[in-house]
Amino acid sequence: MINSTFFLTVLRFILLVLLQVLVFNNLNFFGYINPLVYILFLYWYPIKKNRTTFIILCFILGLFVDIFSDTLAINAAATVTIAYLRPTIMRFVFGVNYEFQSFKLNNSTKAQQFTFLALLIIVHHSVYYTLEIFSFSNSLLILQKTVTVGISTLILSILFSTLFSSKKE
């Protein structure tokens, strides 16, 4: 049981990094929209796991994407931020429910899953583009990129999560 979760996580990690750097970094929709779908890793990661490992794992995930896409350590900073904030976001979205043993992401409503994903993406993209552009005089550009890229990430993430959801009960 532990092993299968472990292998699933590792497999997800590798596949999402490859998918991000080989496919989505080359999308350049409208010239600049490259959805950051590797965030799905944080969406799918088991809830009951140790937080410390989770944060470190997310840092490494971000760093890998950074190394491939030559973005210094911006992805790492943004990913580690949502990794830290994930429990807070979950408590906000799912209420106290999520702390129960029986809670599963699949059992929650579609609206809750959507909000959870959207919040993760909003926080991640605002940190990411603030660090990338890094000037307040361009705050409109930061906002524009956060919104447009965020929407594309959201759409693709929903597609992927419905495509690969584990409904085997």
Binding site: I55, I56, F59, G62, L63, D66, I67, F68, S69, D70, L72, A73, I74, A76, A77, V80, T81, A83, Y84, L131
Partner: peptide, 26 residues
């Protein structure tokens, strides 16, 4: 979290000056 964020910020801002992104590159 603070520690890891600090590390990534250091990597980022060091590289803002010329030629220092020594090991974080493709």
């Amino acid at each position: 979290y603070l520690f890891l964020l600090l590390i990534s910020l250091i990597f980022t801002f060091q590289s803002h000056s010329y030629h220092q992104s020594k090991f974080l590159n493709s």
